[in-house]
Amino acid sequence: MTDELLIKFLLKETSEEENTAIQEWLAADPANISVFIQFEKIWDAGKTLTPASKVDEEQAWNKFREKTKKLKEKEAAVVLPLKKNYTWLKVAAVFVLAIGAWTLYQLMSPVAYTNLTASNEVLIKTLPDGSELTINKKSQLSYASDFKNDRSVRLDSGEVFFNVAHDKTRPFIIKADQVSVEVVGTSFNVKHTKNKTEVIVETGIVKVRLGNEEIRLVKGERVSISKRTKKLQKEQSEDQLYNYYRSKLFIFNGTPLQEVAETLNEAYGVKISVDPAARKHTLFTTLKLSSTLEENLEVICDALNVTLSRNQQEILLSNKK
């Protein structure tokens, strides 16, 4: 499809046969639609420059032809007539300015992001590059709208399991405040709260950065970054509890009772606290997320010989007297 015919189409000077040719070209490939939209934006920008345009028409036309030749390989097209108050050289002159303005606008404009929010349900989302995200409840994130070229995600709050499509040429980058996570294709979990950011790797290699500091994590390793200390602290991870929102199981393997309570608070949206005297208890058992909170609390109390008491919406776990 020639640039001249597209300009003629935008000027509404095409014949019925030419209109049909353009419509068939648009329908042949979604990429052609993208080309036309950008072409139309350049055209609209160029119209605003027309009154103030004072350039060498011949030179502008030559520059325009050079630019279009580099963008796509094709033979020189036949110049088609425009309305009487237009000449091809004037249109080309406007286009040269418009292309420059549009390129500058693209470079200066901030990257657009698409928001994703999981409210009261776990959300599963496939990104444009094929990467699959499992997003825990009460989580907010966004990804670059032009994701096929810019594989970047911003995690504002919450927890997400990333199963990233492999692409060595375009790294997959997640930003959570000052923490940056970079991979090319792997699976890992990221949890970001107001006090801490945690990354746990299931497969592959993950690079985690904080300022000028960087570490690499492999399968079975985790890093926790506290907002207070702002240090990358790598350690081995045998804990499967973080995975409860995907596996639908609470796997407690010597888990401190305080952490048990925090996990149940997150999963059921409740407020459970642990009496200081009972925080020495650790739990070894597996519970189902599909069970009610009351059912799971009953198992925990029996296993640890603790009792619960209620004060309106709050639940307190303490040692039996």
Rank of each mutant, 00 (worst) to 15 (best):
W61A: 01
G254F: 13
L304C: 03
E294A: 13
E57A: 06
L10G: 00
V299K: 01
L82P: 00
S309R: 09
V181Y: 02
V260C: 02
N115S: 15
V164E: 00
T87C: 01
S145D: 06
F64L: 11
S34V: 11
E198N: 07
T117D: 15
L308Q: 12
N296Y: 07
W43T: 03
S318W: 06
L241Q: 03
E132Y: 08
E40A: 06
G185P: 09
K12Q: 08
K231V: 13
I272T: 07
E66R: 15
F95A: 06
A303M: 14
E13Y: 04
H192S: 10
V122K: 07
F252N: 02
A278P: 01
I173H: 00
W102G: 03
I99D: 07
S131A: 07
T20A: 07
A267G: 01
R310E: 14
S53W: 00
N62I: 11
V164C: 05
L232S: 02
T114H: 15
T50L: 09
A118D: 04
Q140T: 15
V306M: 02
I300Y: 01
E295F: 00
A165F: 14
V270Y: 06
L133W: 04
I173K: 12
T186A: 07
N195M: 09
L82V: 01
V201A: 04
N243T: 11
E213C: 05
T229M: 13
P128A: 08
Y86I: 01
D239H: 03
L133Y: 04
E73V: 12
G254E: 08
Q23K: 01
I300D: 00
G100E: 14
M1R: 00
S157D: 08
K248Q: 12
F250K: 00
K248A: 08
V218Q: 13
W25M: 09
L210V: 04
V274F: 05
K54Y: 07
S247E: 02
K194C: 03
G100D: 13
A28I: 13
R228A: 14
F9Q: 06
I33W: 13
G269E: 05
V111D: 14
